[in-house]
C-alpha cells in the first residue's frame, strides 16, 4: 500500500519535473526550436488530444477533428484580419462556431459506429476542406495571411516565448479538463457506451445522445487548437485541413497512444522533432513516418506512452522486489478501441 502510494507520488513528481523542463524551453532553447518545435507540437498536441479523448473514452475514431480545427482557425483569422475584430473575440467566435459544427457533425455521425464512423467523419473532413478551398470569403486556396495574435502574446516568429507559454497553459487546461470529464458521471457513461452500447441502453442511457454530446465536447478543444495554430503560423488556409493533415493528426495520436490523453502531446512532439530534423537526413520522411505508424499499430496498441507505461510497471515490479505488480494503475487505462463491434 505505502509502496503504491510512494510510486504514485513518484509519478506525480516526475510529471511535475517534465512540466518544469517543458516550461523552461523558451529560456533554454533557441528561438527557432521554441517556435518551430515548441509551438507546433503544442497546437498539434491539442488537436490530437481531441481525437485521443473521442477514441479512448468514446470509442469514436474521428477524422473530422481537423475540420473543426479549420472552422475555428479560419473564422477567427477571417474576423480578425478582414473584419478588424479583436483577436480574442475572433477566437471566441471561431471556437463557438467549431462547437456548433461539432454538434451538427456529431448528430449525423452518432448513428454510425466503428469503421462507419471513421468514414463518415472522413466525409465531413472532405466537405469542410472543399468548402474552404472554394469559398472566396476565406481566401479559397490562398487562405488568410497576416493573422495577428493578441498583442500580449508577442510576435510568434521573432519572440515566441509568451506564445509558447500560453499554448502550454492551454494544453495543461485541455488535459486537466478532459481528464476531469472522464471521471464524471458523463465521462464514465461515455466509456460505458464505448464498451457496450446495448448494455448502456438496457441500463437506461440514451446512447446516441451521449455520443453526440461527447463529440460536441471535443469540438472546442480542436477549435482552440485551430485558433492557436493560426496565431502561431500567422496564417491558415484550406491546405491546413486537407485529408493529408487529418491523417497526420490520426498518425500523431496513434503514435503517442490512443489510450491516454498525454499520448497526444507525446505523439505531436515525436512527429514535430522528426519533421524538423529528419527531413534533412532523408527525402523519404513520409515513408519512415508510415513505418513508425505501422510498427506502433502492430506492436504496441497503446502507442509510445503505452510502451513507457509497460516499461515503468516492469521497473516497479523489479523495485518492489518481486512482489506482485500493482493490480490496477492509478487511473484505469481504457482498452484501445481496436474493434468497433459495429457489425453486431
Amino acid at each position: 500500500m505505502t509502496m503504491d502510494r510512494m510510486l504514485t507520488l513518484g509519478t506525480r513528481g516526475a510529471l511535475a519535473v517534465v512540466l518544469v523542463v517543458v516550461a523552461l524551453v523558451p529560456v533554454l532553447c533557441t528561438t527557432f526550436f521554441t517556435s518551430q518545435v515548441g509551438l507546433t507540437s503544442l497546437w498539434l498536441g491539442i488537436v490530437a488530444v481531441s481525437l485521443t479523448f473521442l477514441s479512448g473514452y468514446g470509442g469514436m475514431v474521428s477524422l473530422a477533428q481537423t475540420a473543426l480545427f479549420g472552422v475555428a482557425g479560419l473564422i477567427a483569422a477571417r474576423l480578425s484580419v478582414e473584419s478588424g475584430w479583436d483577436p480574442w473575440a475572433a477566437a471566441l467566435a471561431g471556437i463557438l462556431a467549431a462547437t456548433a459544427v461539432g454538434l451538427l457533425f456529431g448528430a449525423v455521425a452518432s448513428g454510425s459506429q466503428g469503421i462507419y464512423f471513421l468514414i463518415i467523419t472522413l466525409a465531413f473532413a472532405q466537405v469542410t476542406y472543399f468548402y474552404f478551398a472554394a469559398v472566396p470569403t476565406f481566401g479559397a486556396h490562398e487562405g488568410i495571411n497576416g493573422v495577428r495574435p493578441p498583442a500580449v502574446l508577442g510576435d510568434p516568429v521573432q519572440d515566441p516565448a509568451r506564445m509558447y507559454w500560453f499554448l502550454l497553459v492551454v494544453s495543461v487546461l485541455a488535459f486537466l479538463g478532459l481528464r476531469h470529464v472522464s471521471r464524471t458521471a458523463f465521462g464514465l457513461a461515455l466509456q460505458g457506451v464505448r464498451d457496450d452500447p446495448v448494455r448502456m441502453a438496457a441500463l437506461g442511457y440514451n446512447v446516441r445522445l451521449h455520443r453526440i454530446l461527447g463529440f460536441t465536447l471535443a469540438a472546442p478543444v480542436a477549435g482552440a487548437a485551430g485558433v492557436l495554430s493560426a496565431w502561431s503560423n500567422t496564417r491558415m488556409s484550406a491546405g491546413s485541413i486537407s485529408l493529408a493533415i487529418a491523417i497526420l493528426v490520426l498518425t500523431t495520436a496513434v503514435i503517442g497512444g490512443l489510450n491516454r490523453l498525454e499520448g497526444a502531446w507525446v505523439g505531436a512532439l515525436i512527429y514535430t522533432l522528426c519533421d524538423t530534423y529528419l527531413r534533412g537526413w532523408t527525402d523519404r520522411f513520409t515513408t519512415w513516418l508510415g513505418v513508425v505508424f505501422l510498427v506502433i499499430v502492430l506492436v504496441s496498441p497503446g502507442g509510445v506512452v503505452g510502451l513507457l507505461g509497460s516499461a515503468g510497471s516492469w521497473l516497479r515490479h523489479r523495485l518492489a522486489g518481486g512482489a506482485p505488480p500493482p493490480a490496477a494503475p492509478s487511473t484505469p487505462a481504457p482498452p484501445v478501441p481496436v474493434s468497433s463491434g459495429g457489425a453486431r
Binding site: V254, F293, L298, V336, P337
Partner: peptide
Amino acid sequence: GQDLRQALITIAVSLILADQ
C-alpha cells in the same frame, strides 16, 4: 476481427506506398 486496427494498418501502408 479488429476492424479499426486493420483500418489503421492500411492507412500506414498507404502512407508508405504513396511516398514510395
